[in-house]
Write a protein that binds this DNA or RNA. Structure first.
Lengths: 129, 129
DNA sequence: TGACTGTTCTATTTGTAATATAACAGTTGT
DNA sequence: ACAACTGTTATATTACAAATAGAACAGTCA
């Protein structure tokens, strides 16, 4: 899977990495149980520090996206994620609220906005990548 | 308008402040042309530093949400915001992509996800606050 | 044995967030 | 004229996060 880091972005590298792995899982580009590169290999590949990759892996592990075996490496969670519970939906909504507010201020009407949401959703689910 | 700062949040104070003002504008709680509290008054009201409020105002000004007159204070942009252009839509999509990916991983189906999007949107536009 | 795995430790550098204090320059109201 | 207010600017400090660096540990595996 191809990973692109934007060093000019104000988004921290480890967050960019975390997001892209989650997006890979959502699109099906990363299959359940699939092994991930070692922290050293991925760091070398991206030209960043091993600890930065490790930070991303640690976050992904804490949120259940990946499994990490201390001497065998990291792999994509082999079984499906737990379905969205109330805590998750609440967190999701908090993250979306300011974004939606901006869209409203910029006069995107409901249909236009929902079209965009639908398009992004299908970008992940349609034809599995 | 009531503003609530969460000091335990990992979201910077000035970002929380920026977001809440944008949300106030989206919901209609803040009317076009309405004056905002001075940086000193709002800082004192919230128990934070004047520079933190000023940072939020500066960001809001740069993105066109408010107008700032050097000696008269800040006010909500009196005329409507420019409609969403391609640059804005692109930025919006970049912000939403990782959030949507999480929702897909957590097995929210399309209808469920779009319902949430619609509910958030209407929270701002329905009955103008 | 040797190459690999994630993990842990200490350390440094860099940048941002938030605070504090002070001053400036231009209204505005008395 | 005066005082009170406005955003702005400057300097400084504290605290913390991001990213890097180098080294070591403990277990796996061919």
């Amino acid at each position: 899977m191809l990973i692109q880091i934007d060093y000019q972005s104000d988004v921290p590298i480890y967050v960019q990495l975390t997001n892209q792995i989650i997006e890979g899982m959502a699109s099906g580009e990363l299959k359940p149980g699939e092994p991930l590169p070692s922290v050293r290999a991925l760091a070398a590949d991206l030209g960043i520090n091993l600890h930065t990759v490790n930070k991303a892996y640690t976050h992904l592990k804490q949120e259940g996206f990946i499994q990490v075996h201390r001497q065998r490496g990291a792999l994509v969670r082999p079984d499906p994620m737990p379905p969205a519970d109330e805590a998750f939906r609440s967190r999701l909504e908090s993250q979306m609220r300011p974004i939606v507010a901006e869209a409203v201020c910029r006069r995107m009407d409901e249909a236009d906005f929902l079209d965009m949401c639908r398009r992004i959703y299908r970008h992940f689910t349609k034809e599995e990548s």
